[in-house]
Amino acid sequence: MFGTQINLSVVRKLVQLGMFIFMVYGASIVGFYAADKISNALPALACAYDAETADYCTLIPFQHQMGHRVGRVIAAGGDVLQAFVPFFITLITFLGMFVLLNKAFCGWVCPLGFFQEVVTMFGQKLGLNKTESLDESLVKRIRPIKWIMLSVLVFGLPILSGIGFVSHDLGDPFCKICPSRILTTLATGSSDQLYVDTSTPTFMTLSIIGDFIFGLMIALALTIRQPFCRICPMLALHAVFKKIGLVRLIKNGKPRCEKCGLCAKACPMDIREIHTDMEHSNVLFADCTLCGRCVEFCPDKDVLQMKYAMFPIISADPQYFKRRKKAQTTWEKVNLFGRYCNQTNKSER
């Protein structure tokens, strides 16, 4: 499918770069106002706080609808239909887009996901030792956090704030700690969202957590792949609807798979089940971002396939695998302190 120099990862990086530019600076194309935005329910973290964004992440309307509509109707009564109609409109809009690309919104569109990948590349070029895979036990402990983020920060606290159980300051708690808010506004040259807010204890706590997570994410991303993606509530929201998406990841397991495991090593989200699961053909797991690296690094013909509906986008292929592995080795050899790193690697051996 691809030429000798171009591979899926290169194509994906180019798409991600284009989407980053469009999502972060695209207001000059789509228009400035909220009414101009593409969907107001994008299945990726393009931030509404960015004055130049082309579209809004769906998590912001969800939080507002929980707080301003659903929570208030629960507390004071009123028209249930009116409380839920905006939520359903947002959900249907989200699903309308989500069905087209499925979880690939994470791996191909999300500005924050791309930023983390760039930071990891930067770390590698600085000669920092990359953590190839996190410990399995650590991965298992991290996985539930995204569900907690979704249920507590996106739905739970906003509803409770609408009911009046908690402060109104907790109306959009996920946005207050989301690193994409800080990243995308800084990318447009504005430091408006980089702050510690001393107006109330709640705002102060949230702003400190948000800033801390942003700094932590950058440091972790230098050596660990996709640190924030692993706890992102959008990943959890995608997981709920992953079966309706048109992009799918298919496995036709063979006995050789048990001894191989290259797909799991290639996975930036450390999904070892891609390797170990021999029962299911659908291997689109909850943490998958549909980046396609597992397919690229599978050495056996057609064992892993990424498909759009029934049409294959890319299938595992021994020849492609060899080229891809060679390209990866060449890429990783190039860094700013090449000689030093080679010597270090030799001495470590």
Partner: peptide
């Protein structure tokens, strides 16, 4: 202006703190 109760300097310091904490954690990991 929210700048009366929002400090960018403090925000940058907390980001720096998060970065140092992350560097410390990953260093220990190695």
């Amino acid at each position: 202006s929210p700048e009366h109760w929002q400090s960018t300097e403090l925000g940058a310091m907390v980001v720096g703190g998060g970065f140092l904490f992350g560097a410390f954690v990953t260093g220990l990991g190695f």
